[in-house]
Structure formats: structure tokens, C-alpha cells
Design a protein around this nucleic acid. Structure first.
Lengths: 208, 208
DNA sequence: CGTATCGGATACAACAATGTATCCTAGACC
DNA sequence: GGTCTAGGATACATTGTTGTATCCGATACG
């Protein structure tokens, strides 16, 4: 009895997922307001009947989307963190590579960046939503901060700022660099190396 | 003959300004898509007749708004830069204070932060607009970068990263800290000191 | 097999927003 | 002061979007 829901819910769950995926793309491309319920359904291959059978409104779907995204992102970050720690912190490779490895879990491609920006903006406008948004970010930030501390301790590196400040810095640079890469429409490979460069500079500033 | 436009244009210019001001507020609060032309006009004290007499569409108004905002922001930054430089770079006060003084010209209050986020998101989505957005930011960034170089040279400070990277870092931290302050709904005074703290830490990292 | 139910499609009514075409009025100019 | 024009208001037609109420088909179950 691991699954208390009836079997019929299976199909339903599938359409929920497809609707949410479609919505994520639309929200990223044209924003929440720019995406009509109709357009979302069309992209998902459904009609609005399916939509209103599964969600009360577009906002409700957006919240569900955020919750899902939060879960997967946090899970991804934690997975990478433990993966790194399991390798043994003393000799797990280049510090910069480790940093990058973790940050990549926070979303790397065009849609992630766009959706992230849209979500942040929504949080800036909506006080209630801001709380949830902050909670997510804190949860993630704490994981990373702990990792930073662990790595520094394991290698005898001394940070020039507190670990949580370092994390904030890294995340903020990560985001702004990702966005700039998108703005300048660099080829993905270029944008990658640009990110790496910038991150290595920041890591250099923080350590030493 | 400094003004080639007829006198009647005066009233017109006034309503343009009022419409743009109203639109700026609306865009900040509910986003471009969320702001109906009707709502903008109502806030400005006009009807849509006035709107369509002055602008072809909401997007056109948005572009005009960006142009205006770009002008004033750049002007403000340049003004502060020259003001600082006229004081004599050797003893113009605390470095951190100088940094803050310049960055404050880029917008400090709630509406500026929101409008900035909205504009950036728009640039991320619209390739054409992205170009214009980047041009603005570069223009501003270059002013700041030059100032950073000058200050460093005048005081014999050595930067641990290139001046343009330092500028990017400062701007990115400035923005992300401003947004976080808004998210956590700190009192303005608190948010101020938080910004100062964060900036001083970054300045500390960059110098020394 | 037959049937009941769940899940999604269809059809419809209400509303909000847009853009335009026309009208009215305040102010410039003679 | 009379007239003409620019600037903005009003009215209207059109369209897009939303939410709901109803219908139909597939799937589980007896």
C-alpha cells in the first residue's frame, strides 16, 4: 500500500505532468501573464477542459510548478553535494570544478534561466509568494554553505569571508553570468567557458 | 530657435510624461502584460484616446520609457563620477562610500528595483531589445570601470581582478542584494545597512 | 460482456482589452 | 472675439480569454 491513490489516477497524473511541463515552457518564453490557459493546453495537447479538471487556475498551476521545481532542484543539489563528499573531500579534484558541479544542479539551460528570472520577479511582486521563494533558496543555500565549509576545512583553505557570504556571492555571480550569457546569445560552449572563467575569478577572490 | 517644435507641443509633452510615469509604476507593480492600457491611462488621469494619440502601442511606450530611464540613469552615474573625481581622488573619503555613492545612482527604491527586474526579464526574452539593454549597461559599466581604475591608481591600490570584472561583481552584488532586501521586506534603513555590509565585504575581497 | 465512473472534450456565456473612427473643446493665431 | 487646429474624450466593433455546464469515450470492475 505504498500508493493509496486508485489506479485511475495514473492517467490523471500524467496529464498533470504534461500540463505542467508545457506551462513551464510557456512561462519561460512569454511569462505567466503572457501565457493564456488555452495556449498552455494546446502545447500540452489538451483542451481547457483538462486544465480546469486538474487546476483551479493558472496561479495554482504555477505554484504546483514551483513546488515541483523546488523539490527537484534541492534534490539535485543535495545529490551532487553528497556525491562530492563521498569522493573524499581531501582529493576530490579542483575546487572550481566542484563549485561548478554543484551550481549546475540549479539549472543550466535557457529555459531554466528564464523561468528562474520569471519566478524571482513574481516573488518580488507577491509578498506571500516571496516567503516560499526565500525558504527554497535558503534550503539550497544552506546545503551549499555547508559544503563550502567542509571543503575549506578538509583542505585547510581559509576563506576571506564567511562561508554563507561566499555562497551568496557565488550564487549571485552564477545567476548574473548565466543571464548575461543569454542576453549576448553566446553559443552554449562559449557561455560555459565564460561562466567557468568568471567563477574561477570569484573563487580566487574568496580563497587565498 | 532652440525649440523647433510648436508651442502647442507643450501640453502634449506633458501628457506624454504623465503617461510614462504612470506606466512605469504599473509596469513595476504588475508587469508589462499585467498592465492594461486602460489602467495606465486611468492612473495618469487620461483615457485611451490620449494614449493612442501619443503612442502606437504599449510596447512603444515601454521602449520610450527605457530610453528615458537610460538617459537619466547614465546621466546620474556620470554626474556622481565627475563629482567624485572633482573632489580629488587621493582623499575623497572612504572607498566603500564612493562605491555606494555611484551605485545609488542606478536606482535605489522599490519601484526602481522592480522595474529593473522587469526590464531585464524583457531583455532576456526579446533578442532585439536585449541589444539595446546591453548597450545601456555597457555604457554605464564603462563609466564605473574607469572610475575604479582611477581610484585604484590615485591611491596606489592594487585590484586582485581586472577593473571591469570588479565592476561586474559590484553591480551584480548590488542588484541581488537590493532584490533580496525587497524579498525580505526589510525596513529601508535595515536594507541600506545590509547593502553597505555586503558591498564592503566585496570591496574588501577585490582590493587588498 | 455490461455498466458505472472518471477524465477530458465541446459548447456557451460573460467579460475584459484592444484599436479605430468620430466628436468635442481648449488654446493658438489672425 | 472669431476661427482653426491640435489634443484628448467618447462610442463602438472586434477579438481573445476565462470559467462553467454539459457531453462523450475509455477504463476499471462486477
Amino acid at each position: 500500500m505504498t500508493d493509496s491513490a486508485p489506479a485511475t489516477t495514473r492517467r490523471r497524473e500524467n496529464t498533470r505532468v504534461r500540463l505542467m511541463d508545457a506551462a513551464a515552457e510557456m512561462f519561460a518564453e512569454v511569462g505567466i501573464d503572457g501565457a493564456s490557459v488555452e495556449a498552455i493546453c494546446e502545447r500540452a495537447g489538451f483542451t481547457r477542459g483538462a486544465f480546469y479538471s486538474n487546476f483551479g487556475s493558472k496561479e495554482e498551476l504555477f505554484l504546483a510548478l514551483c513546488a515541483r521545481s523546488a523539490e527537484t532542484t534541492i534534490a539535485a543539489v543535495r545529490a551532487r553535494v553528497t556525491s562530492i563528499e563521498s569522493r573524499g573531500l581531501e582529493d576530490a579534484g579542483d575546487v572550481l570544478q566542484l563549485v561548478q558541479e554543484v551550481l549546475e544542479a540549479t539549472g543550466e539551460d535557457r529555459l531554466d534561466v528564464l523561468l528562474g528570472a520569471e519566478t524571482r520577479l513574481q516573488a518580488l511582486r507577491n509578498p506571500g509568494f516571496a516567503e516560499a521563494y526565500l525558504a527554497l533558496n535558503q534550503g539550497m543555500g544552506e546545503s551549499v554553505t555547508q559544503l563550502v565549509r567542509d571543503i575549506a576545512a578538509a583542505r585547510g583553505l581559509s576563506l576571506r569571508v564567511p562561508a554563507d557570504v561566499a555562497t551568496d556571492l557565488l550564487l549571485s555571480v552564477w545567476i548574473s553570468t548565466s543571464e548575461t550569457a543569454l542576453l549576448t546569445r553566446q553559443a552554449p560552449s562559449e557561455s560555459r567557458s565564460g561562466l567557468a572563467d568568471r567563477l574561477s575569478q570569484v573563487v580566487g577572490l574568496i580563497l587565498e
